[in-house]
Amino acid sequence: MTSRQKLVLALLLGSQFMIAVDFSILNVALPVVGEGLGFSLAHLQWIATSFALAAAGFTLLFGRVADLVGRKNLFIGGMAVLGLSSALGGLAGSPEVLLTARVLQGLATAAVTPAGLALLTTAFKEGPLRERALGLNGALMSAGFTAGAILGGLLTDLLSWRWAFFINVPVAALVLALAPSVITDSRPERRPRLDVPGAVTVTGGLLLLVLGLTRAGETGWTAPATLAALAAGAVLLAAFVRIEQRAAAPLVPTHILGRRSVVWGNTAGLIAFATETSLVFLLTLYLQEVLGYSALATGLAFGVLGIGTVVGGLLGG
């Protein structure tokens, strides 16, 4: 790698690492946040769910927006929103303000993740360098989850849960200062269309699906609100599939989804995220509310879980 490539790699990997840290840094502080701002135990999940709704619902849409406005522009804009929303979360004095900050963090994540990955891929030609960069990206995102859990516990015990938000601000500021001059923009050779029907149906479908699953945990699987959200989400996602099959510039080309590598990659990713994120949320409450662990002890316990993911990320390239 040239010195410029190393700097680009450090900047992009550092940003993705921070995004990964955000997935877990607040988890171990949830009981403390709840006590400080007046969340009931049953409503603590919304601190995580509000982030997940925005991040899951808008990632595909922002991936296409990045192709239209430029990946570098969206990446820088997303990092700016992430820094501002983190400051807002750290200063929050009510549940409403905190949840607003989490939604904005989720939107920033939905913008930065696809744009950053596209910039990382185009910064290196196909071959060993790109494979190495993507392997490091996987390892660092896994390490970010582990570091986030430990760091969240450390900050909560020594300072305050608010520093789980504030720590993002200087990192985002550093990226915003360096990215405009270091990162080279990339766009597809042909300017794609936005595919508005596809964007509306997939975003709405994912939002309703996650909302339905969340409502099921609060009111039960047979509650009318739960069934309505799940059914509406399923209808919109089915419509999305039909739209993508006919669209001139689909958000997700359906022929790609049939490739074995994509099928197995998506399946493994779905299983990993579905099990690990729910496991971490429930274990956080169990370790602290039932067993009486401190936030730091909880973070260290999750560090054991993270070692395997780091090793997997290093070998994955």
Rank of each mutant, 00 (worst) to 15 (best):
F62P: 06
A56C: 15
Q45T: 13
N73E: 12
L82E: 02
A48I: 08
G78W: 07
G78N: 07
L44K: 10
A80D: 04
L68I: 14
A92N: 03
G70M: 02
A56W: 07
V69Y: 02
D67Y: 04
A52F: 14
G70D: 02
G93V: 10
L82G: 03
L84Q: 00
G70K: 03
R71H: 15
I47A: 03
A54L: 11
A80N: 06
G34V: 03
A80M: 12
D67V: 05
S86D: 05
S50L: 13
W46F: 07
S86F: 05
F39I: 08
T59G: 00
F75H: 06
A56L: 13
W46Q: 01
G77F: 09
F75P: 01
M79I: 12
V69A: 07
F62Q: 04
L61S: 12
P95C: 06
L41P: 09
R64P: 00
I76G: 02
V81M: 15
F58S: 10
F58Q: 05
W46R: 03
A56F: 13
G83Q: 13
V81R: 05
A48Q: 12
L84C: 05
L41I: 15
G89F: 04
L37F: 14
G90R: 05
F39M: 10
S40F: 10
L60I: 14
E35T: 15
G34N: 11
G90H: 11
G34E: 06
A48W: 00
V33P: 02
A66N: 09
A92L: 02
S50D: 09
S86C: 10
G78M: 13
G90N: 12
